[in-house]
Simulated scan of single mutants.
Amino acid sequence: MKIIENGNFSSWFRILLWAAGITISVASYRLLSGMSMFVGVTVGMIVLATGTYAERANLLRLKPFDNSYKKARDSYKTKDDKQDE
């Protein structure tokens, strides 16, 4: 059970984030009061937003959790930069 597959969260983890975010928000709203309710709903919305972000990235075939930026950064190095390492 891998969490990250092909540069994005796996499908079961995206669904879990989405469901957990809604559950945390609704439970905080119904069971808590005052500032703790605000914090709970905010945390739930952040978890839900993370799952939604990963799902949209999957639909667009983006890889937000990939390490490909290291290859791009290395391709711009000059000979002097490579000798300093």
Rank of each mutant, 00 (worst) to 15 (best):
M35Y: 05
G40I: 05
V43P: 02
W18Q: 01
D81L: 06
W12M: 02
L62C: 09
A54W: 04
I3H: 09
W18L: 02
F9Y: 06
A19C: 12
R14G: 00
E55G: 11
D80Q: 15
K63C: 12
L32P: 01
T42C: 11
Y69N: 13
T52D: 06
I3Y: 06
T50M: 15
R73N: 05
K82A: 14
E55C: 07
R30A: 07
R73W: 09
F65R: 01
D74M: 07
Q83T: 15
V39R: 12
S75V: 07
T50Y: 10
Y53F: 03
L31Y: 05
F38P: 02
G51W: 00
A20M: 04
D74W: 10
G21Y: 00
I46M: 08
D80I: 13
M1R: 07
K82H: 12
L16S: 02
T50W: 06
K70R: 10
M35E: 08
D66V: 02
L16F: 08
E55L: 15
A20K: 02
L32N: 10
Q83M: 13
Y76A: 05
G7C: 04
M45F: 07
L59S: 09
I46W: 11
P64L: 05
G51I: 04
S75G: 09
D74S: 07
W18Y: 14
I15L: 12
D80H: 15
G34Q: 12
W18D: 00
R73H: 04
G44F: 01
S28E: 04
R14Y: 05
E55P: 14
S10R: 03
D74K: 09
I22S: 00
I24Q: 04
L48D: 06
V39A: 14
T52K: 06
Y76K: 12
L48Q: 08
V41C: 11
K2W: 13
D84G: 13
G40N: 03
V41I: 11
L31I: 03
S33P: 15
M45L: 11
G51L: 00
T52E: 04
A19W: 12
I46Q: 04
G7L: 01
L59V: 03
M1H: 12
G44P: 03
S10E: 00
K77S: 06
I24E: 04
D74C: 09
E5H: 15
Y69A: 06
G40Y: 08
K63N: 13
Y76L: 10
E55M: 14
I22L: 09
I46G: 05
V47F: 08
N8K: 01
Y53K: 03
R30M: 09
T52L: 02
S68K: 04
S11T: 14
L62W: 10
F13P: 01
R73S: 05
D66Y: 00
L32C: 05
D80P: 14
M1D: 14
N67S: 09
K2D: 09
Y69L: 08
T23Q: 12
F13C: 06
S75R: 05
Y53T: 01
M37C: 10
A20T: 09
F13Y: 10
A54S: 07
E5N: 10
V26A: 08
S11L: 04
D66R: 03
A27G: 08
G7H: 05
E55I: 14
G40E: 07
K70L: 14
R61D: 07
R61Y: 08
S33F: 15
Y29F: 13
A57V: 02
S33Q: 15
Y69G: 03
A54I: 03
T78R: 10
V26W: 06
V41W: 13
